[in-house]
Simulated scan of single mutants.
Amino acid sequence: MGSGRGNGLRPFVWGGAAGLLLLPVAAMRFFPEAGVDWSGADFAVMGALLAAACGLYELGAWLGATRAYRAGFGLAVLAGFLTVWANLAVGMLGDEGNPANLLFLGVLAVAALGSLLARFRPAGMAKAMFATAAAQLAAVGIALATGGFEARELALTACFALPWLLAGWLFRSAAR
Rank of each mutant, 00 (worst) to 15 (best):
N98F: 02
W169L: 15
V140F: 08
T146L: 07
L137C: 08
L49W: 02
R176L: 06
A175I: 05
L165Y: 12
V84G: 06
F31W: 11
L20T: 11
F149E: 07
A128S: 15
G106Q: 05
A174M: 08
G60C: 14
G16V: 00
Y69V: 03
A167D: 01
R152G: 03
W169H: 10
A76V: 06
A52H: 05
F73C: 10
A27E: 04
A109V: 04
F30L: 07
S115E: 09
E33G: 03
L154F: 03
W38Y: 08
G6E: 04
L165N: 13
A17V: 00
L144N: 10
S3F: 00
E58L: 02
A86N: 09
L93H: 06
L59P: 07
L93M: 11
C159R: 12
A126E: 07
M92T: 12
G94E: 02
C54F: 05
A41C: 00
L23E: 10
F171I: 13
F149K: 05
E33H: 08
A44F: 14
A17Y: 07
G4R: 09
M129K: 01
G114R: 13
L23Q: 00
A126G: 12
Y69I: 09
G114S: 09
E153T: 08
G19Y: 14
S115N: 12
G147C: 00
A34N: 14
L105Y: 07
G19S: 06
A111H: 01
A71R: 12
F30M: 07
A26Q: 11
A133T: 10
A126W: 02
V13M: 04
T146G: 01
G47M: 13
A139H: 04
L22C: 08
G64I: 15
L21C: 02
A109F: 10
R172V: 09
A52K: 08
G6V: 13
V13T: 06
L102R: 03
R176S: 06
L82C: 04
L49Q: 11
L154P: 01
T66K: 04
A167Q: 11
V140S: 12
N7S: 15
A109E: 10
M129Q: 01
A151N: 11
L103P: 01
Q136K: 12
L144Y: 13
G47P: 10
A65M: 06
A138C: 15
N87F: 04
L116V: 13
L156D: 03
E153S: 13
L49A: 12
L22K: 03
A174C: 06
G72P: 12
G106N: 00
A145H: 00
M46I: 15
P99M: 03
G2S: 12
A61C: 00
N98R: 03
G97M: 06
G2I: 11
M1A: 08
A145C: 00
D42G: 08
D95Y: 01
Y69C: 11
L103R: 05
L166A: 15
T132L: 08
V45E: 01
F160L: 15
F104H: 07
A86I: 12
T66E: 05
L170F: 09
A131N: 06
P32M: 14
G141D: 05
S39P: 12
A128W: 14
E150W: 01
M46Q: 15
A138T: 07
N87A: 02
L166P: 09
V90K: 10
W164A: 11
V45H: 02
F149D: 05
V36Q: 00
P99N: 08
L117V: 14
F73A: 14
S173L: 14
A53S: 15
T83I: 14
A27F: 06
A44L: 10
T66D: 07
